[in-house]
Nucleic acid binder design. Structure first.
Lengths: 203, 203
DNA sequence: CACGTATTAGCATCTGCTGCTAATCCAGTA
DNA sequence: TACTGGATTAGCAGCAGATGCTAATACGTG
């Protein structure tokens, strides 16, 4: 039936197809590759590829884990050490998704996110919000690098904290930032932040 | 058997369980809720809840979509209008995952991410990297707000662009930032950024 | 008691798989 | 040329998790 590719080539093809669509079923694979379903099964067996349902399950779990850690997580990166109100260290190993595909260079806002969330985590309050930040990206960071962010509270005036953050890769500074974080020490009960220009903007 | 809850209460319970674990099967649900599998099926039918396999598939798709848009996406938010090298507008509607669970206030780095990626997108070059930024968070942004970011290139000196970004919710400024972005106009072929302190740090 | 809602039960059927056995094709080689 | 072995295809039983349908109970209330 038509131009049939060699076995290793089909295997390569198979992997690619599964990469772009992990939910595809054996039957569909067979049709697209012009072989029988049985062949697909043998191929999967050989390549150690799980069945479609298992694949979907894994995708679901991995992706949700990622979403949790990147969006919902209290801190972007792993909190290594924290002294509330004083200093702390967090480590982030950026994945390829966080980088420009073209260059492998990690997008600045991921580096910012690590620093920002660390700065916020340092503040000893019910709720803390970033009010302002001045940051510098000193060197490009690449996917796979080990980003170590160190934060220190340099000043505190009432509810206003100044936090200095330095991020390093292999001991070399790649990012520096000054964050102004506001503690909202929420009276017991509901936290009200509603209308007021609560942070910055000279009340 | 034992203490059997009322039907509406069981439904509430059901929803909760599925929220915390969407992969759970009818059989398991039946066991945990102390009813028969058939009852679970009727319940799902009544509540319009799809089967476990369908549920996993949806979770997988949604989560990957989210990961794509938040981590891999060229621009965080939807690019509404862009004049390369001049100005542009992007819109982001932050979801609950982007906010502090406690207060519903969106984490600063998501607002930063929108602004940063917009600033980078404005630069008319093969590759562009953020070199520095000074930002202010003027008001808390809540999940569900409609964040409209407007960026304008205010200055250009060789490869260095200054981009001003203002983000609004309902016409009111909530964020302002100054970004310094470097264009790396990559000679055809590989983009080399390796060792050099290519952006910032006075070469 | 009768009626209606809720619950449970049973069975045929579907999809996407696994595990197993057997047949076929085809190329290289003794 | 006939034989051998890898690759491919075929067929069947069985499983898990479902749907769709029919029927039997339970239970509470007017």
């Amino acid at each position: 039936m038509g131009a049939r590719a060699s076995k290793p080539e089909r295997h390569r093809h198979l992997r690619e197809m599964l990469e772009s669509d992990p939910f595809i079923t054996d039957r569909e694979l067979a049709k697209k590759l012009g072989v029988s379903v049985q062949t697909i099964r043998l191929d999967r067996l050989e390549l150690g590829i799980p069945e479609a349902r298992e694949r979907t399950r894994r995708v679901a779990e991995e992706a949700t884990k990622k979403v949790r850690s990147v969006m919902t997580g209290e801190v972007i990166g792993d909190l290594v050490r924290v002294s509330l109100g004083q200093e702390g260290v967090s480590i982030l190993e950026p994945t390829a998704d966080m980088a420009f595909r073209r260059t492998g260079i990690v997008r600045g806002h991921h580096i910012f996110a690590q620093a920002n969330s660390l700065a916020v985590a340092l503040v000893d309050a019910e709720v803390a919000l970033t009010g302002a930040a001045t940051v510098r990206f000193l060197r490009p960071v690449r996917a796979g690098d080990r980003l170590v962010a160190t934060a220190r509270v340099t000043e505190r005036t009432g509810r206003r904290y100044h936090v200095n953050v330095v991020s390093q890769v292999a001991g070399e500074d790649v990012f520096r930032g000054e964050f102004v974080v506001f503690a909202l020490d929420s009276s017991p009960g509901e936290v009200r932040v509603e209308g007021g220009s609560l942070h910055e903007g000279r009340p």
